[in-house]
Structures are given as C-alpha cells and as structure tokens.
C-alpha cells in the first residue's frame, strides 16, 4: 500500500446518482479521496472521471453489489490505490415496494443481496483494513422505514433494520480497534426512490412531517458529512434519524 499521508480516503457504495453522488461530491469538496462503484456509470461519474484523468482523488469501477468477490476486490484495490480506507459509506440500495404476499422471490433476493449482504461483505473487507490501521469509520444509510412500520415496504424495512442492528453489534466489536460504526436514517427525500410517489402521497408525507417538507438531498448529505468528520469522533453504535421529525 502507498502512504495516504493525512488525506482521508472514503469508499461510497452506489455513488453514480442520488444520495451516493451527493455524499461523494461533498467528500471531494472536503478534500477526501473517493472510491465508488455502481453497476453502471452515469453522466455525473463520467464528468468526475474526466476532471481527474489520473484518478488521483476519484476512482470509479463497475461492480455489482450482489457479487461478494467483486466487493472484496474493490475494497482491497481501493486500499492499494489510495493507501488506506478511513471511511466506508454503505449507500448502495434498491427500493422495493408492494405488499409482501405479491412480491416476486427474485426481487426479495435482490433487495437482500444489495441492501444487506453487500453492506456486510463490504464492512467485512474494509474493517480488516481499518483494523490494520487502528482507525476507521463506517456509516451505513438506513431509513425511517427501519424505525417505523409502513405498508408496502416490509422487505426494504427488514434490510434497513438489519443494518441498524448490525451497526450496534459492530460498534461494540470494533470500537476497541478504533473503528466507529453508525447509521444515518433519512426520511423521505427528493430522489429517484420517491419519484414513484404520487403528488397526493408526497402531500401526505409533508402534512405528517413537523418541519413541513420532504428532505433535500443536502439535508442528508450534511449529516453524513458530519459523521464522516472528526467532529463526530465520540459517536458510535447510533442511528441518526434525519427526517424532519416524521418519526417523533
């Protein structure tokens, strides 16, 4: 591995669009080196690659989150390329709407693989690197659906609640190794995942939200940036809910 010096290195899974893209753009703006993957590229990823043709601070690879061997290879490759892994943000996820009784098995398996198994395998690979460093910071993107029940998102809720539970156990397991583990649980925010909500559904969410609106991506990114920063150095094992108060 090369020496990363004082530069922090972050892996953001699923960074091609939406919240992941917002998180990695903030990390780049804050001076971090960023490695990300997604199944396919996007115009935003291609712009970032064009701005850093030698991949000095930004690296993207096509990786399917359902492929454990590819995830491990990506983590180890990042450590070799940038010299360390300081932060892992488990952001990659797929939404899954519909009543459980009418959900296809392959869709359930895909959600479990991408939302949960991929996060576990990435954490396993990255935490090994972090243990050798004696420092690390793992943040997984959870959801208000892990905190409160909502009709039609049972499998999605299960994957996100599992991330919260794993986080609490890992915080105890890895804390003595200098590694913090937390989740950030966004409420409904303007993204592709709520793109299928009707205007009526969005209006209902706003009515039930004490702060009176859906979140903007930056509302979530600001909190993730705080959790990535040393300012959150004494927080571990927590789920930080960012939802305008809808679950309170």
């Amino acid at each position: 591995m090369t020496d990363s010096g004082s530069r922090q290195v972050v892996i953001v899974s699923g960074g091609s669009r939406g919240l992941g893209l917002g998180i990695l753009r903030r990390a780049l703006a804050d001076g971090l080196a960023v490695a990300t993957f997604s199944r396919s590229t996007s115009p935003a990823i291609e712009d970032l690659r064009a701005n850093d043709p030698n991949a000095e601070r930004f690296w993207w690879e096509p990786v399917d989150g359902a492929d454990p061997a590819a995830l491990k290879k990506f983590a180890l490759g990042t450590a070799k390329r940038f010299g360390a892994i300081d932060v892992l943000v488990n952001n990659a996820g797929v939404g899954l709407d519909g009543l459980l009784t009418m959900t296809r098995v392959e869709d359930i398996q895909r959600a479990l693989a991408v939302n949960l198994s991929a996060a576990i395998y990435l954490i396993q690979s990255c935490s090994k690197i972090m243990l050798t460093q004696g420092r690390g910071n793992i943040i997984s993107i959870s959801s208000v659906n892990a905190v409160r029940g909502h009709k039609g998102v049972a499998v999605y809720s299960a994957t996100k609640a599992a991330l919260d539970g794993m986080t609490r156990s890992l915080a105890k397991e890895l804390g003595p190794g200098g590694i913090r583990v937390n989740t950030v649980a966004p409420g409904y925010f303007e993204s592709d995942m709520v793109g299928e909500l009707t205007d009526e559904q969005k209006a209902r969410i706003k009515r039930r939200t004490p702060l009176g609106r859906l979140a903007a991506i930056d509302d979530i990114v600001d909190v993730v940036a705080f959790m990535m920063s040393p300012q959150s150095r004494f927080i571990t094992g927590q789920t930080i809910v960012v939802d305008g108060g809808i679950t309170c």
Binding site: K128, I129, L131, T132, G177
Partner: peptide, 9 residues
C-alpha cells in the same frame, strides 16, 4: 482478527 487482517494484506 488484527493478526489475520495484517497477514491477509
């Protein structure tokens, strides 16, 4: 676990 992690690298 640290020993195993270092040895894997």
């Amino acid at each position: 676990a640290k020993v195993v992690a270092v040895l894997e690298v």
